[in-house]
Design a protein around this nucleic acid. Sequence first.
DNA 1: CTAAGGTAGGAAAAGGTTTTCCGATCGCAG
DNA 2: CTGCGATCGGAAAACCTTTTCCTACCTTAG
Lengths: 334, 334
Amino acid sequence: MSDGRNGPVTIHDVARAAGVSIGTVSKALNNTGSLAPATREKVLAAVKALNFRPNVLAKSLHTGLSGTVGLISNDSFGRFTMPIMEGLEGVLSENGMGVFMCNATDDAEREKAHLEQLLAKQIDGIVVTSRRADRRPAVDLQGIGLPVIYVFSHSDDPDDLTLLPDDEGGAFTAVSHLIQSGRKRIAHVTGPDHFEAVRLRQKGWLAALAQAGLPPGPILHGEWSEAHGRALTTELMVGPFRPDAILCGNDRIARGAADALRESGLRVPEDVALVGFDNWKVMVEACRPPLTSVDMNLRELGAETGRRMVQMIRGTPQSGTIRLPCSLVLRDSA
Amino acid sequence: MSDGRNGPVTIHDVARAAGVSIGTVSKALNNTGSLAPATREKVLAAVKALNFRPNVLAKSLHTGLSGTVGLISNDSFGRFTMPIMEGLEGVLSENGMGVFMCNATDDAEREKAHLEQLLAKQIDGIVVTSRRADRRPAVDLQGIGLPVIYVFSHSDDPDDLTLLPDDEGGAFTAVSHLIQSGRKRIAHVTGPDHFEAVRLRQKGWLAALAQAGLPPGPILHGEWSEAHGRALTTELMVGPFRPDAILCGNDRIARGAADALRESGLRVPEDVALVGFDNWKVMVEACRPPLTSVDMNLRELGAETGRRMVQMIRGTPQSGTIRLPCSLVLRDSA
DNA sequence: CTAAGGTAGGAAAAGGTTTTCCGATCGCAG
DNA sequence: CTGCGATCGGAAAACCTTTTCCTACCTTAG
């Protein structure tokens, strides 16, 4: 239903159709200035008839704001980035803004190239996300004052804003739940301890035990895989400490643990209770029994990132490290 | 290292610094027109000194091309969308273009809103992706001639360009491999047959069997889950047809099958060989034994989408349905 | 030495929108 | 009936870049 001729319909076409000037059309569209109701309606009718859509580029050129945020992922759009993106995109699109995707894959060269592209595209802000092994150098903005948020990723500059799940709190909640349901001997099987998250979850585990006056069980580190979950759990069960519950560093380890326990004749949760971490749907549901797990609420983390980004773009600077709560999702394993 | 004052540095600042006109700066930057080498260098030096970055918005306003493609996902950035995005983004960013992410979640209302936003942002093309249960109505472009590609998703308009993995060929390859390794009684445990992919994979399975003169085994449909993989496999094994191999509709079903077989005392692959579909890393690796699986090469599918999108934007129209080959990744289960 | 041709670089328009500023018209009051 | 004020709407600049066209200068050849 475009007019069918000579390319895109512009504000000039609308002005001509409505018999007014382009300034008037602009005012009618944006509800600015003072216009007679009749004029406004006349313009809006023409807008509708011509199916006019204001060119955002032209507007951006004028306002200096493009309504676009760049998302630089170092996770190759992996499992953790997805829900974050989803939350972020949801909030931003509600505010009429969009998200530009870039995949840097931990390659500093690529990241720099993407950054150049984003800056040239006049983005209003940058969100950096990653696999979160450790703190990363701050993005080099070359002195351009642009809002940046690190989410599920940690800048080494304390003046930056960083958003993370509360790993420690999540582990604390999980272990407290185990204690409340009567468990007294709680071990921890988890990932490599060069992950900050691993150290924090360990801290939460210890804190909950200490609060209840229970002795800390053993902690075993391995890779984030089911195979290691099985192996470490088997190792744990033949040791002197006979756990009646295991806090697992992630769902894959937990699932490996569940398999190992079942195959060695132990029942979950009767003999040993199990809590995972990530609440990854396919894992927790496929686990036998379905796995109780800590959800990092990544979607909400992304949404919060979006809200704060909007605020920053509107002029409220923010900094510091903020941790958002995790929640425990109960199923059958604990 | 921006000049520190009065906002972003523009082409005017560069012109002033180099002592030339803005037109000359533009020519130096784009290698157009005729300029004395000395002048060109003088300008480039000023560009560097001021850290000037041309405003893409202004350029786009002039050329009518924004260098941006919109990606509308109905998969909530799910597991299948990710690698496609990755391939797409890789190719486009090599061509200096960017990807705008939109999550429509199969909500026609949201999709329309996103489409409006994208059109207003003057995108040069649209990529639509989804969970691919069935053909979907073509995106309503309201007569605006804009390149559209449906990938892992199927438009109901044959004049649109649709890119899909060759499900039939993938299944054919998998079954042929089973036959070549001596299997003669090959069953098929798969997902709900309202998926086009399910019907196509079934076709490939039958074709490979027919080519080898083998009788078709039973086909069992269920949900795409491990639990159904286990249940259907158990059901299959107590039936009259004693399969020595199973083609599974996806990796989750295959993993369920592997568990069911192992737990009923059968060995994989010695007694029953297993092939999955999707080659989903966490599944195939966690499977015991590691799963041989058909890879849909989604990353390459995304890359091809990017290449064709670039061609379309440059003026070469394309249409029809194109299926890209799958490949069989051998591990221990077959 | 003069004229012609070629080349370097500048001026200005175009691209679509917002916004400011100003003029004109209408109505009402004196 | 005249004048003032308020309100409506138009003209034009600004945002930043590209590109076309043109001028001026230099070189070379006659």
